[in-house]
């Protein structure tokens, strides 16, 4: 009797698994299709694209579009890669350093005004960037920082309330006993920060680092506002510039090759660090 029921359940389960697989598969295809289309068209013969060929599975593949991207304005793409990388790496390292310092102080060091200052920090979490964007532009213009990378790096390094908030929530969970033990050894605060806290919050640091790296790599508006020299161009600006070429119209093959090249590094980073992403986002939801 019991056995029979179990068997029936399994049958139903199989059906539901098949149904669910179909639905989820469709969703996955919907998510992946633009990537497929991007890569396919980056490899398609540009003449075919011009003729309006939209067949989903043509495989007259050439490297022409990639060659066109690499030769675009004498290899501007490499320059853009380098610039994007410089901005992303410096701002990521900087923000990790300063926000972990502050997070440690807020979590473990008892100093006057700690609580109200932290409260103020958190209160500004919700302020949209658009509000501070205009005065910041003025500040950076007066500092003669426009048309340099500084406006794209410094604000992220010097203030990252989300980073402080996130790292603090990790540091708080470190037992005080660990730090007190170090106290006995005569450890300075810096040593405690460097030797005890940093290794313990490594996963959180990686997560935050990934977010800030990707945020910086993908950001567009600030680049649009501050950078005007061609030698300072970044990947998003390069791609937007490819679209703007009025004389020739949008050369879609070349565009798709450029977008593929811009998406690939991020996708690789992401695939190799998926665990940290998921962790980071999941904890945000729990807070």
């Amino acid at each position: 009797m019991k056995r029979l029921k179990l068997k029936r359940m399994t049958k139903r389960q199989i059906v539901s698994v098949i149904l669910i697989t179909i639905v989820v598969m469709i969703a996955a295809i919907f998510c992946l299709f633009p990537f497929y289309w991007m890569i396919l068209n980056s490899l398609k013969d540009p003449d075919l694209i011009n003729q309006g060929d939209t067949s989903l599975f043509t495989f007259h593949l050439t490297w022409d579009s990639y060659k066109a991207v690499f030769s675009y304005k004498n290899g501007l793409l490499w320059r853009a890669y380098l610039n994007s990388l410089i901005i992303a790496v410096t701002s990521t390292i900087g923000t990790l350093f300063t926000s972990s310092l502050a997070a440690f102080a807020f979590a473990k060091i008892r100093f006057k005004g700690s609580k109200p200052i932290y409260g103020l920090f958190i209160a500004t979490l919700m302020i949209p960037g658009q509000v501070t964007m205009l005065p910041l532009f003025m500040i950076f213009a007066k500092l003669h920082w426009t048309n340099t990378f500084l406006p794209l790096i410094i604000p992220g390094v010097m203030i990252n309330t989300y980073g402080v908030f996130m790292l603090r929530s990790f540091i708080v969970t470190i037992p005080d006993g660990l730090l007190e033990a170090a106290d006995v050894d005569g450890c300075s605060w810096f040593r405690k920060y460097f030797r005890i806290v940093l290794p313990l919050i490594k996963p959180a640091l990686i997560t935050l680092g990934l977010f800030s790296f990707i945020g910086s790599w993908n950001s567009y508006m600030t680049h649009l506002i501050y950078l005007s020299d061609e030698s300072l161009t970044t990947i998003p600006l390069l791609i937007a510039g490819l679209k703007e070429q009025a004389m020739t119209g949008v050369v879609w093959g070349r565009m798709m090759a450029a977008t593929t090249l811009s998406v690939v590094p991020i996708a690789l980073i992401y695939l190799s660090c998926k665990k940290y992403f998921v962790q980071g986002i999941a904890t945000t939801g729990m807070k």
Partner: peptide, 24 residues
């Protein structure tokens, strides 16, 4: 100094920000 844009609106934005920043 060639501003890398083909649109006068974008160009004006860059010129303006260069004038404000006293660069370019």
């Amino acid at each position: 100094e060639t501003v890398p844009t083909e649109s006068w609106d974008d160009y004006y934005m860059k010129v303006n920000s260069n004038i404000l920043g006293e660069i370019g």
